[in-house]
Write a protein that binds this DNA or RNA. Structure first.
Length: 596
RNA sequence: GUGCCCGUAGCUCAAUCGGAUAGAGCACCAGCCUUCUAAGCUGGGGGUUACAGGUUCGAUUCCUGUCGGGCACGCCA
């Protein structure tokens, strides 16, 4: 393979050192802006002083040097201090022919990097169904895992299920009181939704108790603490911790309902896990670790009996790691879980936590504690922090019912896809099951792309009243373009044209050149997105490629091209484009149809 | 109160380590289907990048301050 930027890097280094005795380590190139001729641009301002030349003179001299010395370059031009460099057509043609013969995919060979990365995502509570916030988490985690794999890393996808604690006890209690033995089967309701229903029931009844108490003249604070229901829920938690048979049985039953429901949602979303952890299994190890740390004076016991760590010297606060009654808090389990993972997978080189940015502080504390406990891998822990999904009226709140339910949203996406597909009426010959499949592919494509095209670090807005678009910068637009390419390739085969025949067209037009460059840059784009854990970089790249293809499609005919060499070359080119589009979308967990 | 994050077209988002005239989509207006799928293509209007300073060849990007928004700082998770 001929790597354009690597070659340029060497050539400019050669020029700098030969002409000015400058040894540069890394030359920063950028893509040439489309209003100027050229492929890549060097800004010479940085070297101007060292070379003792004005930027434009320097650019001119560098350009002349590399053009005369290297024969893969076509031309250069200088605008102020910008040196725009253009490769010969033959260079790009050769690149594409090689890409075809070497079966270029943009992906690195599986497990070739020697790195093993554990990536946690999803991590639901078991007291309510998944909502749009979880969807962003799941799609982001899954996509980053795919991107890291494409960079040759071994990735272990993991989920830590928050299956114990007061929240699930609330659902259990409400079910005992008001459930009349209702089950997912008897009510024909998804298990996670059923359990969520009782969580809401609890909250309603609890609020009523509080109001009754306040009416009797008790302060709000006291009422919240002493309402019979909350006391009962706490009792239930204690019974759970003591291993009370009946309680454990109910807990297992209701969690089982939830898992079945989650599995359906995960399946719809197309996400999966290699290993699932449960906090009910890991919190014990957390407790043990804290007791050991207490012996080693990492932690200390306060007069009230609670165990703490003082992180004020590290710019953080004092943190409770174990309650005075000996029960564990949230971070206790996190400590246990982290240690367990590195025990389970001793060859881990990194652990990534996909968790919302509201927990930025929590992870600073967690990683610092792990470091203080002496775990050398603590510095390999990374919090993949992402912004919240907000509604027009603000943040989603489960208790206030202002959440966008994941299952409902998915159904809506499928329906919209179905409706749009029917309106456009291009799917003759599809069987009923093919149609259902297509609607799912398009609906999911729209949703996933909508979420992943936004930089994860930033909060994003979702307006339920405005349905997710299918035109413009969207998943369906990209899927459609892929289907268009496939349609041409099918027609070519029908006409007995060999679509894999490698031919040299001698010259290429601007759009063909742009498309080849996109193919070249795909691999670099994946690396870039992996470095910052940002699928949006891939999304935007694929969109730009797709837009460029559509312009090419509009301006140049492929099958009606008179010049047979050009026709053959174009088939190679668009086939590669289709592959890059499909591979790029796959990195976001999006499938592309052959026809739509 | 302390700390962290954010503010770009009417709306949703881009902008390569600080690079050229800040770009797309939606919405709006005007065109393009006897030609490979119009979920498409072309053109148009729309910006003091919240505001005020500073750093330099060059600032949406870095620094300081102001204003506005969000989050965190629990023996909650």
């Amino acid at each position: 393979m001929n790597y354009a930027l690597k070659l340029l890097d060497e050539q400019i280094k050669d020029a700098l050192s030969t002409l000015y005795k400058i040894n540069a380590d890394k030359i920063p190139f950028q893509k040439t802006r489309k209003e100027f001729p050229g492929d890549y641009t060097l800004t010479t301002f940085a070297y101007s002083k060292q070379a003792g030349k004005k930027p434009d003179e320097l650019a001119q001299e560098l350009g002349e040097f590399i053009l005369s010395k290297y024969n893969n370059l076509d031309s250069f031009n200088v605008v102020k201090g910008f040196l725009n460099i253009r490769f010969k057509d033959s260079f790009w043609i050769e690149f594409l022919l090689n890409a075809v013969s070497e079966n270029y995919s943009g992906y690195k060979k599986q497990n070739s990097s020697g790195k093993t990365i554990l990536l946690e995502y999803s991590s639901p509570n078991t007291n309510k169904p998944l909502h749009l916030g979880h969807i962003r988490n799941n799609l982001l985690g899954f996509s980053v895992a795919e991107i890291l794999k494409a960079c040759g890393h071994k990735v272990i996808k993991t989920n830590i299920v928050n299956d114990r604690g007061i929240h699930i006890c609330k659902s259990m209690l409400a079910w005992q009181k008001f459930g009349n033995g209702e089950t997912p089967e008897s009510s024909n309701m998804k298990g996670d939704h059923l359990v969520g229903k009782y969580y809401v029931e609890f909250d309603k009844a609890y609020k009523k108790e509080i109001n009754d108490l306040i009416a009797k003249g008790i302060s709000k604070e006291e009422a919240e603490k002493n309402a019979p229901l909350i006391l009962e829920a706490q009792q239930l938690l204690l019974k759970w911790e003591k291993g009370d048979k009946e309680t454990i049985h109910l807990w297992k039953t209701m969690n089982g309902w939830v898992y079945k429901g989650f599995d359906e949602t995960y399946k719809s979303l197309g996400v999966d896990f290699d290993k699932i952890y449960y906090e009910s299994d890991t919190y014990i190890l957390g407790k043990e670790t804290i007791n050991e740390g207490l012996q080693k004076n990492v932690f200390y016991k306060k007069e009230d009996g609670s165990i703490r760590i003082d992180l004020t010297a590290d710019g953080l606060d004092e943190k409770v790691v174990l309650r005075s009654d000996g029960t564990s808090v949230y971070i206790t389990q996190d400590i246990g879980t982290a240690i367990l993972r590195f025990k389970d997978f001793p060859d881990l080189t990194q652990a990534i936590y996909t968790v919302g940015n509201e927990q930025d502080y929590h992870f600073k504390v967690l990683f610092k504690i792990l470091e203080k406990l002496g775990y050398s891998w603590a510095k390999e822990c990374y919090h993949l922090s992402y912004g919240m999904v907000e509604l027009p009226e603000g943040k989603m709140k489960s208790r206030e019912g202002t959440v966008v339910d994941a299952d409902e949203l998915l159904e809506e996406m499928f329906d919209t896809a179905k409706k749009t597909t029917q309106e456009l009426g291009k799917v003759e010959g599809f069987s009923e099951s093919n149609l259902v499949e297509l609607h799912k592919t398009i609906g999911l494509g729209a949703l996933k792309y909508f979420i992943l095209k936004v930089d994860p670090k930033k909060k994003m807005l979702f307006d339920p009243k405005e349905s997710i678009d299918f035109n413009g910068n969207t998943g369906p637009f990209i899927q459609y373009t892929h289907a268009r390419i496939k349609s041409i390739l099918r027609k070519a085969e029908e006409q007995k044209i060999n679509i894999d025949k490698a031919v040299d067209p001698k010259t290429i037009n601007t759009l063909e050149r742009d498309l080849i460059k996109f193919i070249y840059e795909f691999e670099l784009t994946i690396e870039e997105s992996a470095q910052v854990y940002n699928p949006a970089i891939v999304a935007n790249f694929i969109y730009e490629l797709t837009k460029t293809f559509n312009r090419f499609y509009h301006e140049h005919s492929i099958l009606k091209e008179d010049n047979k060499e050009v026709l053959q070359f174009r088939l190679l080119l668009i086939n590669k484009c289709a592959q890059v589009i499909a591979n790029g979308m796959k990195l976001m967990g999006i499938n592309v149809p052959e026809k739509m």
